[in-house]
């Protein structure tokens, strides 16, 4: 039996080159170090910490959370805010983006819309506190026009937080939606029009299916953002009542009871819920066409 010809071992350099690894690859080192140091390590630290409760076994914190309605109720309170807000933002972004994409002065509008992002949630919450308050413009205007008799309550409750989350979340959702819709080759809609499709059909048959995958990602990003709401829930909501969101529960555990282990466990629960929704939405996204929104070889 003849020996098989020994295969020449490729040099390390060649192996690396085949995987596109070269000196330039080293440029990822700072970023990787940052991610590991500032994200991966704290996350793992928190994960371990959550399994070392002050009292009870390994799962003590989790048992405590899920046996106390005042604690596990925060999940529902948070979802009750985050889901509608995310959906509202998506639903108003799409029609506006459909209109705006053909506008000539798009940049001005985009700038105006981006402003709320730069202002930060706290400033917006403060502003809304005045604007929507019992003596704010909104109520006074409504009373002046005789639409209401006495001020309606728009702050320190559920609606105050919803409004502020919509205002801070909309620019983000809108910009993502606009870039997706602008990415669709206009010839596709023109082609649909010459084939007899009316505006509504062009949207539902061509535009919508092409942006659904992007909308799903936008939903995930906006949802995660809204789910971790904290400042506006405290300032504009009722942090002890109907807007006692899960991040407030975690903050209280950490900074009022100084139980970092319990706070970590709550943070982990937040993570799992967010991952759950993101995973669900991305799985549904897999059912749609995800290729480029172009009509052919361009």
């Amino acid at each position: 039996m003849a020996d098989p010809v020994p295969a020449e071992r490729p040099s390390l350099r060649r192996v690396l080159a085949e995987r596109d690894v070269d000196a330039v690859t080293l440029l990822i080192v700072p970023a990787a170090a940052f991610v590991i140091g500032m994200f991966v390590y704290p996350f793992l630290y928190g994960l371990v910490l959550s399994f070392t409760p002050k009292e009870g076994g390994l799962l003590g914190n989790y048992v405590a959370f899920f046996s106390d309605p005042y604690m596990y109720g925060t999940i529902w309170l948070t979802l009750r805010l985050a889901l509608p807000v995310t959906l509202i933002n998506l639903l108003i972004s799409v029609p506006i983006a459909m209109r705006v994409r053909h506008m000539k002065r798009q940049r001005i509008l985009t700038t105006v819309l981006v402003l709320p992002i730069t202002l930060g949630t706290v400033l917006i919450a403060e502003g809304l506190l005045n604007y929507l308050g019992p003596q704010g413009w909104m109520n006074r205007a409504l009373i002046t026009f005789g639409m209401i008799e006495r001020p309606i309550r728009l702050i320190h409750n559920y609606w105050g937080v919803v409004l502020s989350l919509v205002i801070t979340g909309f620019p983000f959702t809108f910009l993502l939606t606009l870039s997706m819709i602008s990415g669709i080759d206009p010839a596709l809609e023109q082609a649909a029009a010459t084939l007899g499709a009316r505006a509504r059909q062009r949207f539902s048959r061509i535009v919508l299916p092409l942006i659904v995958p992007g909308l799903a990602v936008t939903f995930c990003l906006a949802f995660v953002d809204a789910f971790s709401v904290f400042p506006s829930a405290v300032m504009l909501g009722a942090p002890a009542g109907e807007t006692r969101v899960i991040s407030i529960a975690a903050a209280q555990a950490a900074f009022e009871k100084y139980d970092y282990s319990y706070a970590s466990a709550i943070a982990m629960i937040m993570t799992v819920i967010q991952f759950g929704f993101v995973g669900l939405v991305l799985a549904l996204r897999g059912l749609f066409y995800k290729g480029p929104a172009l009509g052919g070889k361009g």
Binding site: D185, A187, L188, Q190, A191, A192, A193, T194, L195, G196, A197, R198, I206, P209, L210, F288, Y289, G291, P292, A293, L294, G295, G296, K297, G298
Partner: peptide
């Protein structure tokens, strides 16, 4: 008339096929 009411067939330069 709007394009959808003219009923002409059109072949576009980049084909404009619906990719999905």
């Amino acid at each position: 008339l709007k394009p959808e009411d003219r009923g002409f067939g059109m072949v576009f330069q980049n084909y404009a096929l619906f990719p999905h």
